[in-house]
């Protein structure tokens, strides 16, 4: 067992942030982009422009943004169905993501995947996947391919805390550790699997502790602080890239919205007060406040940034709205390749 695994339950290691002021501003912009994008997606959903399931990321932006800031462009990212944010930060344009939510031919999966199946293989965004925990083995497989080919690409796998109860999580962590695969298992613990509080269905509620079973390095991370997420992921990426060792990160976060657009924000499973209390820890407000204190940004610049992002997102909605549906012949393409 590694020392890190033994101390898995330890609190967040304190460290001086390696993030530069420019990176701070970039991360602020990225979090705001996700927030505004998701708000627009909610509006479009209410208008019937987006169908099916639509799982929003509002409240959790610091996790995706902080983690992806620690990656290289050629690293792999693979996600569950709550993946709009990571897709945007991995470099898929707002237009292509929104068009996919609208089911249009110009979407990043040609309108065949939808909200839960965003893909951009060229950018290393290996999908949103719809079966809870089903993509965790895929992440280890991507890392296996990196190691096999002798590349130093790493893979970050985002999944929710509910996936920890799935067999695939345990089978994969075991093999990733036995085979020393360069993969980071990043659990976004937002406390609820749909409407079920984690502690009601999990014998072990400190997810980092599972790392001990698999002799794996682990960290518990404050997911409402983008810098903390960045630093922890950076350490895990270095461990993966240089030593080819996997890491389990438990990143504690909170989703402000319902599980999906068709679910209530609160009610039987959590209180309105709880949601409001968590919103007081908002990651965007937190970082913006800090940057203002540091003099890195002032309110006027922040307003201008927000306006610019809102314009980008509105343009994405217009683009998606005006894009064509897939050609009817597309129904039968991409089932098999020649």
């Amino acid at each position: 067992m590694t020392a890190t695994a033994r101390s898995a339950k330890a609190t967040v290691p304190s460290s001086v942030s390696q993030a530069s002021p420019a990176l701070h501003l970039k991360m602020l912009r990225q979090m705001l982009l996700i927030r505004r994008f998701e708000e627009k997606a909610a509006e479009a959903y209410a208008l019937g422009k987006i169908g099916g399931f639509c799982h929003l990321y509002i409240g959790q932006e610091a996790v995706g943004v902080g983690a992806l800031a620690a990656l290289r462009d050629d690293d792999y990212v693979i996600c569950s169905y709550r993946e709009h944010g990571q897709a945007l930060i991995k470099g898929i344009t707002s237009n292509a993501v929104m068009a996919e939510l609208f089911g249009k031919a110009t979407g990043c999966s040609k309108g065949k995947g939808g909200s839960m199946h965003l893909f951009d293989a060229k950018r290393g965004f290996m999908g949103g996947h719809g079966i809870v925990g089903g993509h965790i083995p895929l992440a280890a497989g991507l890392a296996f391919s990196s190691k096999y080919k002798g590349s130093d690409q790493v893979c970050v796998c985002f999944f929710g805390e509910a996936a920890v109860n799935i067999g695939a999580f345990h089978e994969t962590l075991n093999m990733a550790s036995v085979w020393k695969l360069p993969v980071i298992f990043l659990c976004e613990n937002n406390r609820y699997g749909m409407g079920t509080a984690f502690e009601r269905v999990a014998a072990v509620t400190d997810i980092v502790e599972h790392a001990c079973s698999y002799d794996m390095a682990a960290e518990l991370v404050d997911g409402m602080n983008v810098l903390t997420v960045y630093e922890a992921t950076r350490r895990a990426v270095e461990r993966a890239r240089k030593q080819s060792h996997p890491t389990l990160l438990e990143v504690r976060t909170y989703r402000y919205m319902g599980h999906s657009m068709s679910d209530p924000l609160h009610g039987v499973y959590r209180t309105k007060d709880e949601v409001e209390e968590q919103k007081a820890r908002d990651p965007i407000t937190h970082l913006a406040g800090r940057l203002k204190e540091d003099g890195a940004i002032d309110q006027a610049a922040l307003d201008a940034l927000d306006a610019e992002i809102q314009a980008e997102v509105e343009a994405a909605v217009k683009y998606a709205d005006e894009s064509p549906d897939p050609d009817p012949a597309e129904l039968f393409t991409d089932v098999l390749v020649d």
Binding site: Y76, I78, A121, M126, G134, I136, P137, L138, A139, A140, G141, L142, A143, F144, S145, S146, Y148, K149, G167, A168, E171, T172, N174, M175, V178, W179
Partner: peptide, 26 residues
């Protein structure tokens, strides 16, 4: 052993690792 890989008894896991490896070009 790099190309002939013994697994634990974990069909779901190693089938999925295979799928991920195929996504990675193997």
């Amino acid at each position: 052993p790099k190309r002939v890989v013994d697994t634990p008894i974990a069909e779901l896991g190693f089938a999925g690792i295979g799928v991920g490896a195929a996504m990675g070009g193997l």
